[in-house]
């Protein structure tokens, strides 16, 4: 599958790197919206899709080898250092990168896919509404952890969500309308 090199038209609505939220329109499900986005943009070179229900791992390799296949070693060293510096309990810190991918749960698969696209320097990363079910406390920790990384890698994380609690208190420019993506 040859990937297209052009940036999507909605890229102009995302001026700065960081996290963005797409609220699911009434009468539609987050899964349906995510599938619509996937179908419209999965061919674009600059867009990565994160869906932990989708296995997307090589079970016989470690997490480190899975994140970037044939990756430069220093990328993984930097990621290891990052996880070490940011004691994020969800990832069991030290041993997470050495864990066999066949033993990952859905949350860990989410991080594998996310780190993969961050290290690949994808400018636009679209996730399912996976974080809706994780509880607001987990989301806040994750969100704070990630914001600096997104700024550093100049990436835009676009999270499909139907959870109003998650978007409460977010700046207006971080909330995107589903129409922006679906009316191309």
């Amino acid at each position: 599958m040859r990937k297209a090199n052009t940036s999507p038209r909605w890229a102009e609505a995302l001026p700065t790197a960081g996290s963005y939220f797409v609220l699911t329109p009434t009468g539609s499900s987050p899964a349906h919206l995510y599938q619509q986005l996937w179908h419209s943009f999965h061919r674009l070179d600059d867009v990565g899709f994160v869906d932990p229900s989708d296995q997307s791992v090589i079970p016989f390799l470690s997490v480190a080898d899975n994140i970037l296949i044939d990756s430069p070693k220093n990328d993984i060293v930097r990621l290891r250092q990052f996880l070490f510096d940011n004691e994020y309990t969800e990832l069991n810190t030290h041993d997470f990168l050495d864990k066999p991918a066949s033993q990952l749960n859905e949350t860990e698969r989410f991080y594998v896919q996310l780190f993969r696209f961050l290290l690949l320097k994808r400018h636009y990363i679209i996730t399912t509404n996976f974080l809706d079910n994780q509880g607001i406390a987990t989301f806040r920790i994750f969100f704070n952890l990630l914001e600096n990384v997104l700024q550093a890698t100049d990436s835009h994380l676009i999270m499909v969500t139907s959870d109003h609690e998650m978007v409460d208190g977010q700046p207006a420019e971080r909330l995107l309308s589903a129409d922006l993506f679906t009316q191309q």
Binding site: M1, K3, G48, S56, I58, N66, L68, F117
Partner: peptide
């Protein structure tokens, strides 16, 4: 081995 194919594709590996 579709999960492997997905992982290879996600990391930009060609056919």
């Amino acid at each position: 081995r579709q999960s492997e194919l997905k992982a290879y594709s996600a990391t930009g590996k060609s056919v």
